[in-house]
């Protein structure tokens, strides 16, 4: 029988994505056994993050400083902005290392069913950034879902008249994908967006 404090930690960890009660118990046991090398550094890191965590007022990314590391990086191409739905999408794109411009995190996507409206997202900030001058292209990197595409069309509409080029990520066969395993929609889109070799 564990103490209430240990039980509380276990139940808090069990609520995290990817963890259940059993894996949370294992994590807690590990932290208790490795107090000096795991528990204390984890407490320190969490406390530092909690104290410093902030949302970048320019792009909406989460970081420990404002403007965030990406917006403050002088090596970044400031003429291109890549718009993503969530911070996780920003991390995925930046991990790929193939985009050297700036980002803009909307914080969601328009959804008739979930009641998400344009004013709930960082769309006005994006239009202001596009109007500010210096930006020549906005890349809409929305998910290939109905809500994602609805948001992309809405953004294209809002960015009309700002003078920037609005582009969208390609949709089609994924790298390493076998045609046999792809769904009809992806195949149809890939055929539609075929390019000369």
């Amino acid at each position: 029988m564990a103490s209430p404090e240990i039980d509380q930690l276990t139940s808090l960890l069990a609520k995290l994505p990817g963890l259940g009660p059993r894996s949370a118990r294992r994590a807690v046991l590990h932290l208790l056994k490795k107090r000096e090398t795991a528990l204390n550094p984890l407490i320190g890191a969490l406390q530092t993050l909690a104290d410093r965590l902030t949302t970048c007022t320019t792009c909406g990314n989460v970081d420990t400083r404002d403007p965030c590391g990406i917006c403050a990086d002088p090596r970044r191409d400031r003429t291109v902005i890549c718009v993503v739905e969530e911070v996780s999408d920003l991390w995925a794109l930046d991990r790929a290392g193939s985009f050297g411009g700036l980002y803009h995190v909307l914080g969601g996507r328009l959804s008739a069913l979930d009641g998400v409206r344009p004013e709930d997202l960082g769309i006005d900030r994006l239009v202001a950034r596009a109007r500010d001058g210096g930006v020549t292209e906005v890349i809409l990197a929305m998910n290939a879902t109905l809500e994602g595409q609805t948001t992309a069309h809405y953004l294209a509409d809002r960015l009309e008249g700002t003078g920037v080029r609005v582009t969208q990520l390609a949709h089609g066969v994924p790298v390493g994908g076998e045609l046999d395993y792809l769904d009809d929609g992806t195949l149809a889109q890939a055929l539609k967006a075929r390019s000369p070799v």
Binding site: A144, L146, Q149, T150, A156, D183, D184, G185, A188, Q189
Partner: peptide, 24 residues
């Protein structure tokens, strides 16, 4: 899956909007 609405979803803004509205 029998028939995907993917091409309609990734089509023009009207196609996406009609698909989204009619199903919602």
């Amino acid at each position: 899956l029998d028939q995907s609405a993917g091409p309609l979803m990734l089509g023009s803004r009207l196609s996406t909007a009609v698909l989204a509205w009619s199903t919602a």
